[in-house]
Amino acid sequence: MQTEVKETLPMEELEQVAKQVRRDIVRMVHGCQSGHPGGSLGCTDYLVALYFRIMTHSTEFDMNGVGEDLFFLSNGHISPVWYSVLARAGYFDVSELKTFRKLDSRLQGHPTTHEELPGVRIASGSLGQGLSVAIGAALTKKLNNDPGLVFTLHGDGELQEGQIWEAALFAPHNKVDNLISTIDVNGQQIDGPTDQVLALGNLRAKWEAFGWDVLEMNGNDLADVIRVLELAKAKTRKGKPIMILMQTNMGHGVDFMMGSHKWHGVAPNDEQLSLALNQLTSGMQDY
């Protein structure tokens, strides 16, 4: 079954879904008093756009995803946003979100195929591995003459892992041009701002020097996210892999969480939860 929402959801409803996903994120992290709300809230608009507008995909999950667009979350710690989007798109029942990070759950702290959660095709959490995996999936799609595209998301701090740059070198050399990668440039990592921990320098210049077609977008403006992802799709199969530098606010949508590394991996208490939910009215049902 193709997701029915593709093409049909108007912008206002997409905004509503994004609000609800943000509600889900803070409630999930609060529910188990652990997890990573900051990056999850920052990447909400991107994942909503991907699953509700951009990707051709089926909620009748099949590991091989023949004919579908595939998504790989390389920065696996922002699992709350992915789980919520998968559930809201119809991969599994939204009631399962309440099991996040709890014993016997399919919603592990970091995503895994091990519990057979529909929508997940590789384990991630140990950083820096997702780009290589996505390249492999993209190569197989080419060998199989599969028209599907491969999307990935990475944190900016994750770029400090060496394997990323092995993959960065490989994809242009091998013309992996059915791949659209995105980096969440929020400028924050656990120990502080990336500029202080280990500065990433000029990311556009770096990726262009490696041979990627580089785009930029405002990751917290849904209209801009959709516009740039559509542009990226139009640029596929032209000999180059595509890299989108996505500027986001860590914690976007909850004022007291925004723009600080302090909410990278901390759960809100009861009071903070109700403050956050008051800022996120969606008109949809909570799980």
Partner: peptide
């Protein structure tokens, strides 16, 4: 680039290789 090789190999299985 052996780390990249292992990741690419893992990804290539998705789709049946």
């Amino acid at each position: 680039a052996e780390a990249n090789m292992m990741g690419i190999a893992a990804g290539m299985t998705i789709g049946g290789k």
